[in-house]
Design a protein around this nucleic acid. Sequence first.
DNA 1: CAAATATGACTGACTGGTCAGTCATTGTCA
DNA 2: TGACAATGACTGACCAGTCAGTCATATTTG
Lengths: 241, 241
Amino acid sequence: MPSSRTTTAKTRSKPADHRRGEKAGSARAPQPAKASSSEPASSRAERAAGRRQAIIDAALDEFISRGFTATRLDDVAKRAGVAKGTIYLHFKDKESMFEELIRTALVPLIGRLHAPPAIGGSVRDAIEGFARTFVQEVASTRRGEIVRLIVAEGPRFPSIADFYYREVVSRGLAAIRALIELGVARGEIKQKNLARFPQILVAPALIAVIWQSLFGRHAPLDATEMLGVHLDMIFGERRTA
Amino acid sequence: MPSSRTTTAKTRSKPADHRRGEKAGSARAPQPAKASSSEPASSRAERAAGRRQAIIDAALDEFISRGFTATRLDDVAKRAGVAKGTIYLHFKDKESMFEELIRTALVPLIGRLHAPPAIGGSVRDAIEGFARTFVQEVASTRRGEIVRLIVAEGPRFPSIADFYYREVVSRGLAAIRALIELGVARGEIKQKNLARFPQILVAPALIAVIWQSLFGRHAPLDATEMLGVHLDMIFGERRTA
DNA sequence: CAAATATGACTGACTGGTCAGTCATTGTCA
DNA sequence: TGACAATGACTGACCAGTCAGTCATATTTG
């Protein structure tokens, strides 16, 4: 619905290539370096990559603080230090840019979920590790806002909601469920039914993220403490206070 | 004094149509707040109230499915079966209309929170009652979407977030906290620290609402079942499986 | 009680500003 | 120098908010 009016495309003489953001820089060197204050030896490709990254960062900030529709690409361009036209060298349009950003922003999260499962240690330690990682990497960073952004815009971007469900939610819940079942088998967790709703285990973590976005300035919430209490409830009181 | 403003264009052709009499459209709300159903013939004031209600319903639907910025007041007017100008007879502008709608939509929720506390029955029963009410009145109605809308637009409407925190969240959590403390005192709840974070108790309920909005069509979630399991975790396994 | 008059709810074309997306021009590197 | 990256002025759609005009209803008058 938003801006689908490109129908009048006149198929300009330009080669129809137009690399979409999608896979463009997949083979790039693992050293984006972001906005390089100094420009030592930058090849054209490297500078292009740097600009692309600047656009991504700027756009993410704008989308987070304004939402999809209210974000102006003029502002994104200004913040990224490029002209508006440059954005269209990297992304097809506002909508696909938004979708790609959300997808990309999630990749790091997915990686963390595949952390080594607790084979040696206790299940509680494993989950505690997840919780700590979550607080550090999500709750107290921009990524937390991205989670809120998904909640906010998901219904209007079904493809994002679907992608998110497939790539993050279903996998994450499956991993958590496996851990819960292990915990039940080992006797660490009493509630057998918990494995049926792994959502219960992650719910406080998500609430913490949303809370910070909405009420954080007014009534900060100690996410680490809260998650600790929650784990005590699942596994029983901690041995040492 | 005859304004000369319209002089440029000679008196336009009359608007032709002008449906009068029955308001045909979806104007009539399924739940007339006023006693408009009693009187077949509506007075001017009554019709105005009916229109106002139609606008409110239409606007809420549009805001829910599109968000604040992407909602067009032309669409709201069309859906309500009124002209756009009519909206401005009832609301100052789009923003204050949005704020008023969100506030109004919450009033019924607040009422429920002040339900009779469990003096006679068990704390678990009281909380179970809350949960049941929540599922019936929020999770499975449009109000659930309003919760999501607040999460989505809250950061851009601090006054809404503040209002919501003051009127709903802080009061609701205080009530829950009191119940938890009662439960701890009675020995129904083991985890004493739970009272420090009443958020843990309501977290799964909110997650259920958000889940339905985002993934409901793809992977429906049995909120009642989940909340039941969660309560089992807090109070201990239910007597009868 | 009916006709005349006043009221104001309602309308929708219109204005002014905004912004996504384009493309002719300019700049830069290999 | 040729190819391509980058620019930013420009276009046209879009939409919040306005207001002169309309007419059903309410009120007053004869």
